[in-house]
Structure formats: structure tokens, C-alpha cells
């Protein structure tokens, strides 16, 4: 039997991750083809960020397999791992900007440190990416601590796309932005994905954003994908959990652990 010519971009099989007694991911299976944009929705604390970190190899899954371009990534180290990481860009939920470096060096970080590009050339590119996310040149010289939360998010987005990776993860790219800027960011994500032909996984609580970015949607609950399908089918999923989530209702199968007054 020979390998098919184009293995799926990202393939998850039975991915499990627990912290001590607490099981966060309990067997995630999913196959994402090249050029698709998956949006993962789900309640707070259901393990969405943990899932991305497992794919990146920042966290090591307890069991299961994660393949990128058909190659196993779980447990690989050194150059092998480096090869996978080079394909991936990530927007961290908390931005995770380097606060010892000015904004433009944050954006150009991988170009300078990872690819050894000339600082001048890298700065040009960084300024271009910053302009794309609506940040003018003077901002490039500021330090992350001098920016508002929304501006930090946009810098983090510029950093994630700066090296034009094949795979991009967006962990809540629009949380904390005003609705107009959120829509600009959504457009930007869609545009850069189309331009780069990138495969993306995004996490969001914002259904408007999900509808705009996604070609595929999956909902995580109880450590599993309880529903996954095409984005256009989200409104007729026939799944009570999904319906409750997309309509934002307190009543339904998902019970929040809060005391009602």
C-alpha cells in the first residue's frame, strides 16, 4: 500500500491530556485538509488552548497521535521538531509578546532569529505586517507594555503571520477588540489565509467571527469533539449542545457550575 499523494495537513488521533486527576482532552479525533480553516468553539476551560499547545508540542499529550503532513509529531525532538514548528505560526491567547523588545522586533522575531534575515529587511516586512493590522509606523518603536490590550492582540497577529507560515493557529484573535476592529481582524485572517493558502485552526467565542473565518467548525465539550462539520451546517447541526452554544443560552444540556441566586 502506498501513501496517498497528499496526506491531510493535520491529523489528530485519540489525543488525550490530563493534568493530574483532571482529564482535559479525552480522545480528540480530527482530520484537517490543506487550505481548510477550522474554528473550534466550546466553553471556557474545556481545553481549547491545551489542544493547540499539544499540536505545537509545548504540552506533551498523554496518548494519541498528532500528524502534520503525515508525519508524527508527538515525542519528536530537536531538528525534527524544529521542522514542524517552522511551518506554524501562533497567536497566543494572552498575546505573549516579548516585553523586552520593541513592537517591530517582536513581529520580525522569527525572521531575524530563526531565519537570519538582515535586520533592515526584516523591519521593512514587520512594518508592512503592522500596517496590515492597522498599526502605523510610530507604534513599531513602542514596547508592548505601552500598548492597549487590543493593540497587543494586533501585534501578536502580525507576529503570527509575519513569516508566512503554512499553518496558523489563532487563539481568540478578536477577544478584547471593539466590534469594528474585530471585523477588520476577521477580514485580515480570511485574506491572509487566502493569500498564503494557509491551513488554520482558530479558537473563538465570537460566533460572528466563527462564521466569517471558518470552513469547518468543531465543538469541544467534555474533552471530545461532540460535533464537527462544515461551517455552513452549524445552524442545522441537530445537536443540542451546539445550539445552546451558538445562541448563547443559559438553559440547555451544558450546565455552568454557578449558583443561581
Amino acid at each position: 500500500m502506498s501513501e496517498p499523494p497528499n496526506p491531510p495537513k493535520i491529523q489528530l488521533n485519540g489525543v488525550r491530556k490530563a493534568f493530574g486527576q483532571k482529564v482535559v482532552l479525552d480522545g480528540i479525533d480530527y482530520t484537517l485538509d490543506e487550505g481548510e480553516s477550522l474554528v473550534v468553539i466550546g466553553g471556557s476551560g474545556t481545553g481549547k488552548s491545551v489542544l493547540l499547545k499539544c499540536i505545537l508540542g509545548i504540552l506533551k499529550p498523554d496518548a494519541g497521535s498528532i500528524r502534520i503532513d503525515g508525519e508524527e509529531t508527538v515525542g519528536v525532538r530537536g531538528e525534527e521538531r524544529e521542522k514542524h514548528l517552522q511551518k506554524i505560526g501562533m497567536l497566543f491567547q494572552g498575546s505573549a509578546l516579548f516585553d523586552s523588545l520593541p513592537v517591530w522586533q517582536n513581529v520580525a522575531f522569527r525572521l531575524i532569529q530563526g531565519q537570519g534575515m538582515e535586520r533592515k529587511e526584516a523591519k521593512e516586512i514587520a512594518l508592512g505586517k503592522l500596517a496590515q493590522v492597522g498599526l502605523a509606523a510610530p507604534v513599531a518603536e513602542l514596547y508592548p507594555a505601552e500598548l492597549s490590550g487590543g493593540m497587543q492582540k494586533r501585534v501578536a497577529l502580525a507576529r503570527a503571520i509575519a513569516s508566512e507560515p503554512e499553518i496558523i493557529f489563532f487563539d481568540e484573535p478578536t477577544t478584547g477588540l471593539d466590534p469594528i476592529m474585530a471585523d477588520v481582524i476577521n477580514d485580515l485572517i480570511v485574506a491572509s489565509v487566502r493569500k498564503l493558502g494557509a491551513t488554520t485552526i482558530s479558537i473563538t467565542h465570537d460566533m460572528a467571527s466563527a462564521r466569517k473565518i471558518a470552513t469547518k467548525i468543531a465543538m469541544i465539550h467534555g474533552g471530545r469533539f461532540i460535533w464537527a462539520g462544515d461551517a455552513k451546517d452549524i445552524d442545522r447541526s441537530g445537536n443540542a449542545y451546539v445550539d445552546q452554544f451558538i445562541h448563547g443560552r443559559a438553559e440547555g444540556p451544558i450546565q455552568m457550575a454557578v449558583r443561581r441566586p
Partner: peptide, 25 residues
Amino acid sequence: AEIGTMRVTEQIDALTVLSTDPYKY
């Protein structure tokens, strides 16, 4: 304090993702 802050704000994870080894850097 500096490296600890980088750890808890995920800057060390970001280094790794950006193809830079935190030990070396």
C-alpha cells in the same frame, strides 16, 4: 523575576514556537 514572568505570560512558549531555543536565547 524576568524569566519567571516570561514563563507565566507564555513568552517562553512563544520563543519555542518562533523557532528559538529558550535555553540558547
